[in-house]
Structures are given as structure tokens and as C-alpha cells.
Design a protein around this nucleic acid. Structure first.
Lengths: 337, 337
DNA sequence: TAATTTTGATTAAACGATTAATTTAGAAGC
DNA sequence: GCTTCTAAATTAATCGTTTAATCAAAATTA
């Protein structure tokens, strides 16, 4: 049914070794023979069986993007991941790699990522202290960690300049005259992006001579519902809050909706800055001032870093790539009255 | 280095065949032996080499979701796909299947499918007339087609009741007194979902005794930018349009933004109905009246249908599953003044 | 007890590639 | 003409499983 190397060899009147040599350009075949074999390969659109090749060579042309889900069955509503996955898939395709998506829970055992099955993985937002991290490291397969600030030596990481993002957003709000700026964060784990963004926030405050008030940090969840619920808290807060820095655009979306329902207008009553610049931010009403990161490009970068690692296998010096961020000023922020 | 079945067999003092039989629960092994072997497998955390298994069995526990992209390098901005993929991944995980994502262009060669020994594929929104469709059919691997209305016998399909969705949305607008209702569609290919939704629209018009006017159908693209640009057209249209039925929520999002910029308020000046009920629709300002389909569940359903096919292999009767839709009435529609 | 069946294990042949070791055929050197 | 060298092809082993074909021992039957 399916063509094998034997079929090609038979038709070309050569041995399978020769066919293999032709395919792998080992230079051990005469030009004439090579041409003849190639023609037959072309004609039948033959491609070698990856499993067989892998059994010998130990590579599968398959990588996985690992998303530590909150819970099985729970839909992750941030389009961030989708955009990222598009970037990864696109970058991988260029080098004829395929991309798997795997959602895992935090204490998941990774037997399903059989060591011999994947050529590499990209892991998003993982903390070094988790069991999952240890399990992944133990796999000793090429790996790129994205959006986490890990201290372990010799690993590959990609993230945006989150500290700068936090700094820029806060500085912008400060420049508009805001003093009481709330942060609505996802989880503030020390190795997460939100922690860094908060550091940037604190740095900007400090430069402006404003005392950091931990009560203004809300650890609410980065989801759309998280933002929505934060509105209530902000509304009932005694202090006069005039600006909110939400560490995700979807959180900002929920927040603005929530504020509206409580009779607070954005930006007239409260200014809001988001984070990510997902595609919808530009089209929201009001359009969202936000810290832009190029998510698609981040995906491409990560896959590139991973494939580099896969190709020259024994280089384990590790590498960090920090991508730039940019403040996009739109309608959701205004001068404090 | 890596443990093989031989190591386990040696340590257990049995043959590799016995180890294999233990792993695959063939029932050909005595309880005592099985227990002994299992213990050793456990102790070493051994997992069989998938490539070897694949080579023998020609199955991979791997399926792919195929998204016919518009173009390579172009990011597909509809979160629909992400939600769907989450559903698929979740459903697949239950049965220990992994999920690949593949974006293909219309004339893409599909060799990767054989190479990876995919056990099955889910294809989204594909037209029967395309070359890609023919190529896929020729592969003769288990396949589920989603969101297309194909006429070929013996194939498996999953879609929502799009005709009903179109009907419900239109009926709702009619009941609010609207007469000139524009449709902003993606592509109106005969086998696509948008075509069906338009049929529903026409049916509702007919019941209300309103003549169908093809000039009111805009074939603008279902993207957010498509909706945005449609606003201009609607604005400059001479006829007094009071309502728009956008065949995607993100299109509606772009549209509402566009209308706003042109000084038209939703729903005061124009009512807008979307389609999909993505998670953001509820949080938009105004929140979006839309036809809800449970995308996550659709993903789960598709994967279930696919795995059924994979498991009892020779049943090729085909099957269609039609999932229900529901109208969600929110703020973006109002009675015509 | 001898013949037969059942049970539980082993042997060995695939699966489809890669590659080290080997063979063959010409060409070159003397 | 004989040896040596080189280029180009082949042979055969190997990767780690599954499974059909066997086989041996124990259990059952006559």
C-alpha cells in the first residue's frame, strides 16, 4: 500500500542502501545513479517512514508546546496562546517540523511525553519549584522555557522585557497625573512575568517619589472574569483609585466591562492599561492602551531557538532571548482630572 | 542509556515477548509473571519506545487538527480555533491521544500525514471542490470534517445547525422591527457555514414577507478587519440600514468599532447580531447579541467521532452530527425607532 | 497409563529505515 | 600482465517493538 524504500530500490534497480544514501546526500553515490533514484522518488512522491528513521536516528521531526493548564476541561480563554501557537507552527513548518499541543496539569507525570517521541518542547510559564519543572528537566530533551524567569543554569529561555513593560505602563499613568494605581495581576509567583512587571511598576513609582502600597496589588487572576470581579473591589475601595494597570488585555476587557456596569466610565473616571496587545485591544470601545509584545514573533523565536538546539545537539550553554516591548497609547487612558 | 524491553526482560528473567504481552494486556501471561514484570516496569519507570511501536503497528496515538490557513505567515485571529483546539485536545487526552496542529494552504502536499503516521485528522471548513479535499480523501485515513456541508457519501461531519442560527438571528431582528438587514459574511462558498446561515436568513425574511435583496449581502471577510471595513460601506449606503447580522463575533467587534468611529451608535442607530458567542462577546461594550455555538464541545464531539472511527476501523458508513445553536440576546440589538 | 487439551512461556520474523563492513569493477602504476 | 588503489555499489546488522508460530509442561480425559 504505502511505498517503502524497498519499492524505490526495486524500481531503480539498486539496493536500499543506495536509495538511503541518495536521500541523505552522503556523497557516496555517483551522479548518474543519484539522478535516476531521485527521479523515481519524485515520481512516486515517496517520503521515508519517520518511525523507522527515528528508531535508528532518534529524531521525529515533532515538537510540542506545553501549556500548563489550570485544570483539565477548563478552557484557557486567553487568545495569547493561540497567537503564540500560530507563530510556533509557522516557524516549525519552515524546517519541516510538526507541532503538537499538550495541556498538562501542574503535577502531571510526563510519561506521555515519551522521551523518544518528541525532539523538543516549548514550555510556557512554568515555575522552577513545581514538580512539573523537575520532571521536564529530567527528560533531558531539548527545551525552551517561555515567559518564566528561571535561575537554573544552562537552559534556554525566551521572554519579553516584562520589567520594562511594567515600567512604561506605570510611567505613562504617572505622567497623566495618576497617583493611586492599582495592579490587577494573574499569579504573582516570583518566577512569573507578572512579578517582573510589578518590579517595573515599583521602579517607576520610586522614580516619581511615590510610596509603594502593597494593598493596591490585586492578585485576582489574569482571566477575563478575574478582571471583571476586580472592578467590584476597586469600586468599593475607600481610597480614590484613578488608574488600573491590568497585566493582561483580556483582564482589562473584563475590568472595563465591570467598571461600566458599576457606573464608572473609562477613561473619564478611571484609566486602564492592559498588557499583550492582542488583536482585539485596538477594536475595543474604548480602545485599550496597552504594552505590546509581538506574540507571534515570540513563538517563531522560541521555535528557532529550540531547533538550533536540536540541530547542534551537544551545545548546552543555555541562552536567554529578551524581546522588546512597546507602549501603545490608545483611548483607555486619560489625564487625571 | 535508555531502558528497552530487553533490559526489563532480562531483569525479570523472562522473554521480551512476555514483557510485551504484559504491557499490552493480551491475557496470555499468568498473573504471577505479570505482577513480577509490572513491578520491574514500575520500578524503572520504563515506557516503550513509541517509534518502534509505530513501526510495527502503524499507529501513533496522534491525530491532527488541520486548519486551512489563508496564507502562511498570516495569523488567524479568530479565537474560535483556539477554543476548538482546546476541546479537541481535552477529548483526545481522555483516550491517551496526542494532538497536532497543522496549518495548510490550499494546495499543500500532505506527506506529513503519512510520515507521522497520523491515526486520524479533523479538518475545518474545507470545500469539496478544492484540491486539498481530494488529497485528503485519497489518504484514506480516518477523518472528520468540521463546519462544512459536504455531499460525498460515507464521510463523517460535525457542524452546528447553521441554518437555524441564521434563522433565529434574523427573526430576532425582524421582531424588533428591522427591515433592512445587512449580512456581513466571510466567504459564501456553497459548502460553507456562511451559506447555510444565509439560507436561514432568507427563510426568516420570507416568512415575514420581506423580499430578499442580494445587495444587502456583504462578502467582506469574517475577520475583525473585515467587519471594521464593512462599517464604511454600511455608512455610505443610501438605503436606510438599521441592522447588521455579522457571521462571526470578531467581525461584529470590528464592525461596531467602525460604526462608532463613523458616529453611529450600537444599538441606538444600528443593531448588530454576531455569531459564535466567543468568550469576549459577553464583555464587550455593548455586549453582543449573538448566536451561540458551544465550540469547546464541538471539538470534543469531533474527536469522539474520530476516535470511534479509529477504534472500530472498518465502519465506513459515515455520520453527521448536528449540534444545536441558541440565540443569546444582549445589548447590541434594540427596537428600531 | 496414554492421549489430548490447556496454559504459559519462548523463538523468530517482521516493521522500514541507516550505516559499518564488504565486495566489485575499473583505473592507475609498475 | 599483475598488483594496488579508488569509486561505487551491495550486504547485513541494527534500532525496539509486536505477534504468529512453536514448544514444554501441566491438567484433563478416556
Amino acid at each position: 500500500m504505502k511505498l517503502t524504500i524497498n519499492d524505490i530500490a526495486r524500481e531503480a534497480g539498486v539496493s536500499i542502501a543506495t536509495v538511503s544514501n541518495v536521500m541523505n546526500n552522503t556523497g557516496r553515490v555517483s551522479e548518474d545513479t543519484a539522478r535516476k533514484v531521485k527521479k523515481i522518488i519524485e515520481a512516486h512522491n515517496y517520503t521515508p517512514n519517520i518511525s523507522a528513521r527515528k528508531l535508528k536516528n532518534k529524531n521525529s521531526q515533532l515538537i510540542s508546546v506545553i501549556v500548563p493548564y489550570l485544570k483539565k476541561g477548563k478552557f484557557e480563554d486567553n487568545p495569547f496562546f493561540w497567537q503564540l501557537l500560530n507563530g510556533v507552527e509557522n516557524g516549525a513548518k519552515d524546517q519541516r517540523f510538526n507541532v503538537m499541543l499538550t495541556g498538562v496539569e501542574n503535577d502531571h507525570d510526563l510519561t506521555f511525553i515519551n522521551k523518544q517521541y518528541l525532539d523538543g518542547i516549548i514550555v510556557i510559564g512554568l515555575d522552577e519549584k513545581t514538580k512539573l519543572f523537575k520532571n521536564i528537566i529530567n527528560l533531558t530533551i531539548p527545551c525552551v522555557f517561555m515567559d518564566s524567569y528561571l535561575t537554573k543554569q544552562g537552559i534556554y529561555q525566551v521572554y519579553n522585557n516584562d520589567l520594562m513593560g511594567g515600567y512604561l505602563a506605570t510611567k505613562h499613568l504617572l505622567s497623566l497625573g495618576h497617583k493611586k494605581i492599582v495592579i490587577v495581576a494573574g499569579k504573582l509567583a516570583e518566577q512569573g512575568v507578572d512579578y517582573q512587571r510589578c518590579l517595573g511598576y515599583r521602579q517607576a513609582l520610586e522614580e516619581a517619589g511615590i510610596v509603594y502600597d502593597p494593598n493596591l496589588i490585586m492578585d485576582q487572576g489574569a482571566s477575563i472574569a478575574g478582571g471583571y470581579h476586580a472592578a467590584q473591589k476597586i469600586f468599593s475601595n475607600q481610597e480614590k483609585i484613578t488608574a488600573v494597570f491590568t497585566l493582561s488585555d483580556i483582564g482589562a476587557m473584563g475590568l472595563i466591562r465591570g467598571l461600566n456596569e458599576l457606573g464608572l466610565a473609562v477613561p473619564e473616571d478611571i484609566s486602564v492599561v492592559g498588557y499583550d496587545d492582542i488583536i482585539y485591544s485596538e477594536y475595543m470601545i474604548p480602545s485599550l492602551t496597552t504594552v505590546r509584545q509581538d506574540i507571534y514573533q515570540k513563538g517563531e523565536t522560541a521555535v528557532q531557538l529550540l531547533l538550533d538546539q536540536i540541530n547542534r545537539k551537544n551545545n548546552s550553554n543555555g541562552k536567554q532571548i529578551i524581546l522588546p516591548v512597546e507602549l501603545k497609547i490608545r483611548e483607555s487612558t486619560a489625564r487625571r482630572e
